[in-house]
Write a protein that binds this DNA or RNA. Structure first.
Length: 628
RNA sequence: GCCGACGUAGCUCAGCGGCAGAGCAGCUGUUUCGUAAACAGCAGGUCACCGGUUCAAAUCCGGUCGUCGGCUCCA
């Protein structure tokens, strides 16, 4: 989606002219900053997906209002038409000299301290290059900027015309919290005015699809400061969405041999000491609770240890495996306040979790089954725009536990499973969990940000820690392998994302209200109710405004069980259409005099801003058959 | 948590040292209407909270809480 605003050609973005342009824009911004804020220390300033940034340590904190001044100076500098000249250092000492003497721009040793550090990080044998831009302005003053940089850049600063500085953020030097926080300035640049305007318009449009805005407008979910940060409240319509999705998945899982289990929301700390989460997950745990008798409990951050205890509750034979325990389990994780993001990042969420206990010889088949289920879920949700990432072990890193043979077996199983099911994936070394490789599904939100959704993980660690066993055909104990999996990932994140993907216009099977029946005048309410009752298969509650309860048609209660509302507000038809359209109801059925007489409804479908004419209910049901 | 921005009626926003405002939503009444907003009236506020400056604070300053964009981390 964001690709629309990056490389349009077949060449990768990193090799495009646009990428170079943004890189040059970053240099131009750095030059403006060194002129306006003497003593500012430059660090890194790369192009990124939709623009560029530069991380800078300012002598004094700057504010967003200061961006206009920097932007103006950039425009002034750009017009000087400075060519970007590449220079290569002869060796490391030469590079050091250039940084000290030239990059410092006479502002002292201090301002180039980060650059010297970056120089040290350049791998041995790699050419060390600089990019220089200089010009003499109308007042005869020399304007110069030179930066340690791999390049490449565009020809001249003059090409940097259509740009905008977007925002300020803090960013740790080298991405490490223990380091000093720098000021990051984000900007964007494009080749044409239209492209820049297009991007800004895209951002405005994205804001309209924001799930937080739509969640409120459509009555799906909310947050309350009194309840607490990151703790969502599901409104009736959002709950319909959630339960509909759960039901779909539950049905699929039953067919695939899963068994439902239910476990509590808190557990003794002992459980998590045993699982090891108390150590590895410590900073994500809410504070512990102590009961009056001195026992310590924690709010559950994961479901796995509970399912493991269920596994351990009986002797297991190799004939019992695989065992698949599924639970829509709500977990609580303490996320730092600054990283909460609507429904996409919350502190209490429900995973569509399951744990499979399998024999080594079953690993591949079970994996294929799980990946197949995930594909089916994606298809049903209508999600086509996703990426699958296989996280494997980084051989360089020592944090991974377990035997090499196990890693090889499970990494191969994941990849083979993707192949068999036809799921396109990319392998990402170093993205495995410390206890095993995994497959993640990644989806973009309205703003083009990546979110990890569904996940499958192989785990050799927990069976080890809990000493899980089954008796093999050799009568000896064997250790099962665990597969953790959650096709949605979490209901909160998935529904947040779906809301943005569909801009609130959910597919028919998910729509909280599928059909709205709109009586034109009070005298049509009774008929409208009859229509609703036939579609939903049970009586509408309450009395019609005429004061008479519609006689229930006993034959009617076998309807297609649609979710139907009757708009009995005392408003004009136009108003009712407007309101129900804004609520993104898939079908509106209008009932007036003509319909009451002929036994028809006037049909209006979402997305088609027109009257589709009148039809009988049977005709309507036939029409929507493909969507059921 | 850290950096930056923002908190005015249920929602969207105006007001930015001198009487707290509009539209929508809500309530009441009238209207009973055929494809995206009927008409009229009423009600609705600790201007997020706490403190300070000032004759006077929604407005300026400080702190707290919350939200948003980033960093770090993850479903």
């Amino acid at each position: 989606m964001s690709g629309r605003f990056t490389a349009m050609s077949a060449a990768p973005y990193e090799e495009s002219h646009l990428y170079r342009l943004r890189h040059t824009a970053a240099h131009l911004m750095a030059q403006a900053v060194t002129e306006l804020y003497p003593g500012a220390k430059l660090t890194l300033g790369p192009p990124i997906e939709n623009g560029f940034y530069y991380d800078i340590e300012f002598p004094e904190a700057i504010k967003e209002a200061d961006l206009a001044g920097i932007e103006n100076r950039m425009r002034e500098l750009a017009k000087l038409d400075m060519p970007l000249v590449r220079r290569e250092a002869t060796d490391r000492d030469d590079a050091r000299r250039i940084i000290r003497e030239e990059c410092s721009l006479g502002q002292g040793e201090e301002v180039i301290s980060y650059k010297l550090e970056l120089l040290d990080a350049v791998p041995e044998g790699q050419t060390i290059s600089f990019y220089e831009q200089r010009a003499t302005d109308k007042q005869g003053k020399e304007r110069l900027f030179i930066d340690l940089c791999r390049g490449p850049h565009v020809e001249s600063t003059k090409e940097v015309r259509h740009f905008k500085l977007m925002s300020i953020a803090g960013a740790y030097w080298r991405g490490d919290v223990r380091n000093k926080m720098l000021t990051r300035i984000y900007g964007t640049a494009f080749e044409t005015k239209d492209d820049l305007q297009g991007y800004l318009t895209f951002l405005e449009e994205a804001a309209k699809r924001d799930h937080r805005k739509l969640g409120r407008e459509l009555g799906l979910f909310m947050f309350s400061p009194v309840v607490g940060q990151g703790l969502p409240l599901w409104l009736p319509k959002g709950t319909v969405l959630r339960e509909t999705m759960n039901q779909f998945l539950r049905d699929e899982q039953v067919k695939r041999g899963y068994q439902g289990v239910v476990t509590p929301n808190i557990a003794s700390i002992k459980l998590y000491e045993k699982s090891g989460h108390i150590l590895t997950f410590r900073e994500k745990l809410f504070p512990f609770m102590e009961d009056p008798e001195g026992e310590t409990f924690i709010l559950k951050p994961m479901n796995c240890p509970f399912h493991i205890e269920i596994y351990r509750s009986a002797m297991r034979s190799y004939r019992d495996l695989p065992i698949r325990y599924a639970e829509f389990g709500t977990v609580y994780r303490y996320e730092q306040s600054g990283e909460l993001a609507g429904m996409l990042r919350v502190r209490g969420f429900t995973q569509d979790d399951a744990h499979l206990f399998v024999r080594p010889d079953q690993l591949l088949d079970e994996f294929v089954g799980v990946v197949d289920l995930m594909m089916q879920v994606l298809k049903r949700l209508g999600l086509n725009d996703y990426r699958a990432r296989v996280g494997t072990r980084d051989p360089e890193n020592a944090k991974y536990i377990g035997h090499d043979d196990n890693w090889r077996l499970s990494e191969e199983a994941i990849i083979e499973a993707c192949r068999r099911v036809g799921l396109d994936y990319v392998v990402s070394p170093g993205d495995a969990a410390f206890y095993g490789p995994k497959l993640d599904l990644i989806i973009k939100d309205a703003l083009g940000r990546d979110w990890q959704m569904g996940t499958v993980q192989v785990d050799y660690n927990l069976p080890e820690r809990f000493e899980l066993e089954y008796t093999g055909d050799d009568s000896k104990p064997h250790r099962p392998i665990m597969i953790h999996r959650a096709p949605f990932g979490s209901l909160e994140r998935m529904i947040g994302l779906l809301t943005e993907q569909y801009a609130g216009a959910f597919p028919f099977w998910l729509a909280p209200v599928q059909v709205a029946v709109l009586p034109i005048a009070d005298r049509h309410v009774a008929y409208a109710r009859q229509v609703a009752e036939r579609l939903q298969g049970y009586p509408v509650l309450g009395l019609a405004p005429e004061g008479e309860q519609v006689a229930a048609d006993p034959g009617a209660w076998t309807g297609p069980n649609l979710r139907v509302s009757v708009d009995e507000s005392r408003e004009t038809l136009g108003k009712k259409i407007r309101e129900n359209t804004k609520q993104k109801v898939p079908y509106l059925l209008i009932c007036g005099d003509r319909d009451c007489e002929a036994g028809t409804v006037g049909v209006r479908a979402r997305g088609e801003e027109a009257d589709l004419g009148s039809m009988t209910l049977a005709g309507f049901l036939e029409r929507i058959q493909p969507e059921l």
